[in-house]
Design a protein around this nucleic acid. Structure first.
Length: 469
RNA sequence: GGCGACGUAGCCAAGUGGUAAGGCAGAGGUCUGCAAAACCUCCAUCGCCGGUUCAAAUCCGGCCGUCGCCUCCA
């Protein structure tokens, strides 16, 4: 079954054919590191992580590159406000972001280039563009000449003359065309600067990704991704620079994720309506965020609210329910056969959905069908290889979505310390139940429930877990 | 003003021509000492109007509404 991907460039869903059979190069625009990352950043990271995981599942060897923007106006401003060195500040938040990625179960990229370490590639590219007439100097700056690029606007669907009217761009009369954008910004006092053939300064925003892509993945990449708020101007300008420089198609498939919506609005730094990754992970698991995101489609906005998060948490508990140990001893027979079939069907349904432009919602539906089949089989006493295989398939497919399906870690020191006492109470309650002291037994259970500890009596004894109300 | 997306049950959400996946919540039931969990059953005609078609949530037109980009942004 062939994978199909929606390509922003052509505005259609196309069969995925990589440049080189069996290999995929992927570049995803990373964050500007000047503040704590929020769950919108997490969403982008999670989505492209799963794109990468699914491509790997399909048998491709994926090279995945994502950058940090560590030279930028906002970083410089923030650093000046705090009396810090801009690169030190950027490094601080980049390191923090690495921890977030790990917490969110995002697989590490093969390369994490940073602007500050790619200067020679950037200046080399600007020089090349200037030589071919795609760039011009202006008072220490260098600008890209959009009128020289005949298909400028092809990604975002804008035309140069239309782009002029009604925009909020502050027109810089010095520029040849209002759409011209900075490739290099001449140094100003108090700003970090690097030497270049155009004088001291720093790169414009867009050139970095073009240069890093070129450096680490070559002149053409299979997939270039990012949030849909980057389509214009960032990705449009990347295309302009890269294709003017190399004369080749920059990226074959442009993928853009939708925005996380908080109270009906895009979550963003400038709106100030953000929930940081730290904040989220204090209350919820990474699995919950992933499930919340993948319940919808990656290109559409995702509704984030206390209700949708809670719904995701409960759905997760249901997925985990299928991973409980077998209870019987039936390894063959009608029930075991039914489970074997359901396992096969779940895999087919999952991959069919994912092949259709990463229809994760459909994939998750397949997971729930498998959960039901496993739980039914367990109740019927099925055990053995088919039971294990069904659970393993569930783990594997959920793993493509980056779901761990592990119980929320309760590694807080206080909770760890409480364990022996909880075990003791559970043990005492078992004795009470054997003595049919129901009132007392129920009092223990209810009291523990009030402390966020849930008890369940099963045929194999009582199990307990932490579960916030 | 320009470009674009979306509007499916109480909530989230898939489906893009043949009479509506899945999850959460809710109702009833099985199981249980009682619960919990699990399992079974029930719960929508798809924003509004008009058109095309044997047949539309799915195509076309209009309207209403929400959102994104056009400025830094995942």
């Amino acid at each position: 079954m062939a994978l199909r991907i929606y390509n922003t460039l052509t505005r259609q869903t196309e069969e995925f054919v990589p440049l080189e059979p069996g290999k995929v190069s992927m570049y995803v625009c990373g964050p500007t590191v000047y503040a704590d990352a929020h769950i919108g950043h997490a969403m982008a990271a999670i989505i492209f992580d799963t794109v990468r995981r699914y491509l790997t599942y399909k048998g491709y060897t994926v090279k995945f590159v994502t950058n940090f923007t560590d030279v930028d106006d906002k970083i410089i401003r923030r650093a000046n406000e705090q009396g810090r060195d801009p690169l030190e500040l950027a490094n601080h938040y980049a390191e923090k972001y690495f921890r977030h990625l790990s917490d969110l179960n995002v697989l590490p990229a093969h390369v994490y280039p940073r602007v500050s370490q790619e200067m020679s590639w950037i200046t080399q590219m600007i020089s090349g563009l200037e030589k071919e007439g795609f760039a011009y100097r202006l008072d220490g700056d260098v600008y890209f000449r959009v009128t020289k690029d005949e298909d400028y606007g092809k990604l975002s669907g804008r035309k140069l003359d239309e782009a002029l009217s009604g925009t909020r761009i502050e027109e810089d009369a010095r520029k040849e065309h209002p759409g011209d954008f900075a490739l290099w910004k001449g140094a100003k006092p108090g700003e970090p600067a690097w030497d270049s053939p155009f004088g001291p300064g720093r790169p414009g925003w867009h050139i970095e990704c073009s240069a890093m892509c070129l450096h680490h993945l070559g002149e053409m990449v299979d997939i270039h991704g990012g949030g849909n708020d980057l389509i214009f101007p960032h990705h449009e300008n990347e295309i302009a620079q890269s294709e003017s420089y190399t004369g080749k198609t920059f990226a074959r498939y442009w993928m853009h994720n939708g925005m996380l919506q908080l109270a009906g609005e895009k979550m963003s730094k400038s709106l100030g309506n953000l929930i940081t990754i730290d904040d989220f992970l204090k209350e919820h698991s990474a699995d919950a965020l992933r499930l919340l995101i993948f319940t919808g489609h990656y290109r559409k906005p995702v509704t984030y609210s206390p209700e949708t998060v809670e719904s995701a948490e409960r759905s997760l508990a249901r997925l985990r329910s299928a991973l409980r140990p077998a209870q019987g001893e039936l390894s063959t027979g009608e029930q075991a056969e039914a489970l074997r079939l359901a396992t096969e069907e779940a895999r087919v349904a999952f991959t069919t959905a994912m092949d259709d432009d990463f229809n994760t919602a459909g994939g998750i539906a397949a997971l729930f069908e498998l959960v039901r089949a496993i739980n039914t089989a367990r109740t019927a006493g099925v055990a053995g290889p088919f039971y294990a295989a069904a659970q393993q398939t569930l783990r594997e497919l959920a793993g493509i979505l980056g779901l761990t399906l592990t119980e929320p870690a309760s590694d807080a020191a206080s909770e760890v310390a409480a364990r022996p006492f909880i075990e003791l109470l559970v043990s005492v309650r078992r004795d009470l139940r054997q003595a049919k002291q129901w009132a007392l037994a129920d009092k223990v259970r209810d009291s523990l429930r009030a402390l966020n500890i849930v008890l369940e009596d099963t045929p194999d004894g009582t199990i307990w877990r932490y579960e916030a109300e």
